[in-house]
C-alpha cells in the first residue's frame, strides 16, 4: 500500500528540499546520456578523447558536453541514481510485495492490452525511447524539470509540465480505457 498523499507529499518535498539545501536540485535523465557514452566507449572507443590540456571532448557535440563525466562516470549525479535504485529496492523489500505476474506486466496494462508480457515489454521499450528522447530535447525530465524546476519557480519547469501533461492525459485516456 502506498503512503497517503498527506504524508508522502510532504516527505517527498523534504527530500527535494534537502537535495537543494545540501548539494543541488535532483535530476536523472542526463545520466542516460553518460551511460550511453560509457557503453559506446566500451564497445567502440573513440566517442571521447583527451585534449592537450587534460580535459575531455568528443567529435559528437552532445557527448562533448558530457565528455568529462563519460571519462569518469562515478560523479555525484551517477552515484545518486545508483543510490536511488538501492533505496527503491530496500523500500520494496521492506514494505511492498509485488506479485510475480505484476513484475512481468502491470495489472492496468494486462487489462487494457491483449499483448502478453512480450507486448508489454515492447511497449515499455518504445516508451523508454520516446521518454528519454523527449527528456533530452527538453533538457530534463520529470525530476529535473517538473519537480526541481517548478519548486524553484523556473519558467522552464512550468512549460515542461504543461507539455508533458498536454500529451500524457490524452494518450492515457486512449490507451488505458479499462480500469484494473
Amino acid at each position: 500500500m502506498v503512503l497517503n498523499w498527506k504524508i508522502g507529499g510532504p516527505l517527498l518535498g523534504v527530500v527535494f528540499f534537502l537535495a537543494v539545501l545540501l548539494v543541488q536540485p535532483i535530476g536523472v535523465s542526463t545520466q542516460f546520456v553518460v551511460a550511453d557514452g560509457v557503453l559506446w566507449e566500451q564497445y567502440a572507443p573513440g566517442v571521447i578523447s583527451q585534449t592537450a590540456d587534460g580535459g575531455w571532448t568528443s567529435p559528437y557535440p552532445y557527448f562533448a558536453k558530457y565528455a568529462a563525466d563519460i571519462a569518469n562516470p562515478l560523479t555525484y549525479s551517477m552515484i545518486f541514481v545508483a543510490a536511488m535504485m538501492g533505496g527503491a529496492f530496500l523500500s520494496s523489500v521492506a514494505f511492498g510485495r509485488i506479485p510475480l505476474r505484476e513484475r512481468f506486466s502491470p495489472a492496468l496494462w494486462s487489462a487494457n492490452f491483449r499483448i502478453g508480457w512480450v507486448g508489454r515489454w515492447v511497449l515499455a521499450f518504445l516508451g523508454g525511447v520516446i521518454v528519454l528522447f523527449g527528456a533530452r530535447l527538453a533538457g530534463g525530465c520529470t525530476s529535473g524539470h517538473m519537480m526541481s524546476g517548478m519548486m524553484q519557480t523556473a519558467v522552464s519547469g512550468y512549460v515542461f509540465a504543461f507539455g508533458a501533461f498536454l500529451t500524457a492525459f490524452p494518450t492515457a485516456r486512449i490507451l488505458l480505457k479499462k480500469e484494473a
Binding site: 511497449l123 518504445l126 516508451g127 523508454g128 525511447v129 520516446i130 521518454v131 528522447f133 523527449g134 527528456a135 533530452r136 530535447l137 527538453a138 533538457g139 525530465c141 520529470t142 524539470h145 512549460v159 515542461f160 509540465a161 504543461f162 507539455g163 508533458a164 501533461f165 498536454l166 500529451t167 500524457a168 492525459f169 494518450t171 492515457a172 490507451l175 488505458l176
Partner: peptide, 11 residues
C-alpha cells in the same frame, strides 16, 4: 520535448 515525453510516459 515535454510533449514527446508525455506520450512515452503514458505508454
Amino acid at each position: 520535448g515535454g510533449a514527446i515525453l508525455g506520450i512515452g510516459w503514458a505508454m
